[in-house]
Amino acid sequence: MNLFEYTRAETLDAAMSAATEDGAILAGGTNLLDLMKIGVVNPTRLIDITRLPLHDIEEHDGGLRIGAMVRNADLARHPVILSRFPAVAEALLSGASAQLRNAASTGGNIMQQTRCSYFQDPLSPCNRREPGSGCAAIGGETRNHAVLGWTEACIATHPSDLCVALAAYDAVVEITGPDGLREVPMESFHPLPDANGTGPAPLQSGEIITHIRLPDSGGMARNARYVKLRERTSFAFAIVSAAAALEIQDGRIVQARLALGGVAARPWRARTAEKALADQSPTEEAFARAADLALEGAAPSGDNRAKITLARRIAIRALTRAAAGTPDRLPALPASVFEGDCNG
């Protein structure tokens, strides 16, 4: 890790003016410090925003406004999250470990970098790390790479579980910068790569995420789930994952939400699938048709064709679980395919 200057921001303005080119914002540090240790990012200034007044969760219009510094663990325990946005809680609790969730912030979770192993290896060419250098993942080990929205410039996936659930709930990212406030929907916050590179940076120089807004989940509150396929029962990133929320009235779907994780450089909101589900009965057949639509255009970016099948199936599973209703208490193994089926 290179030497840097450490400053604790006392005001948002101070943070913004410091968060330029060679400066990095330090929240929980669980991603930033990790990447600094392995030499992937080398900021010369660190601006600590942990003391900024961004720690609150406010209720507004049936929804929530979540401060960027709200820790993942606290967000997952918030009563409104548990009662009205249970897929967010389940996604959070399936991510990382209890220790990491106590440190990780909402803003940091959204801004965390891909786990592409070539991105993490400063000796490998990587357009994301070093624009124009190429993409070492192509032709390499691609089991964790994208099947949707990728280009030859980058085939990485975004690793966040939280973002998948947030995207499904139409969350909005509130950003403050030198030019004032702007808002971006979660589902399009993370750029997809284009032919030449990884796309425009999600934040401009000096910009800071201040809040995440979750609009009222309406009639979907108790029909929402997150499911995550992993290589071990806990403490692993998703191979693929899905968040689903349904509003069901009189045996018919009024509205549906579906987002996939582990498949693209952003949480993949499956709008066509959602539309196709409207006014359908919540059956496995309907979910299977929707899942087909969700994976339309999917293509392996390497030796990862199986992911397309897995993503399709996890979409069905999430929808099926959502239709069955969110359990009053989240399962012992949140988002697991096992849930705690073998209580020993």
Binding site: L26, G28, S97, L100
Partner: peptide, 21 residues
């Protein structure tokens, strides 16, 4: 998790905690 300590009563990984923060 070998580095787990409690900060203000909460468990965290002290290896990813910048001391000054």
């Amino acid at each position: 998790g070998a580095c787990t300590v409690l900060i203000d009563g909460r468990r965290i990984n002290s290896c990813l905690a910048l001391a000054l923060s």
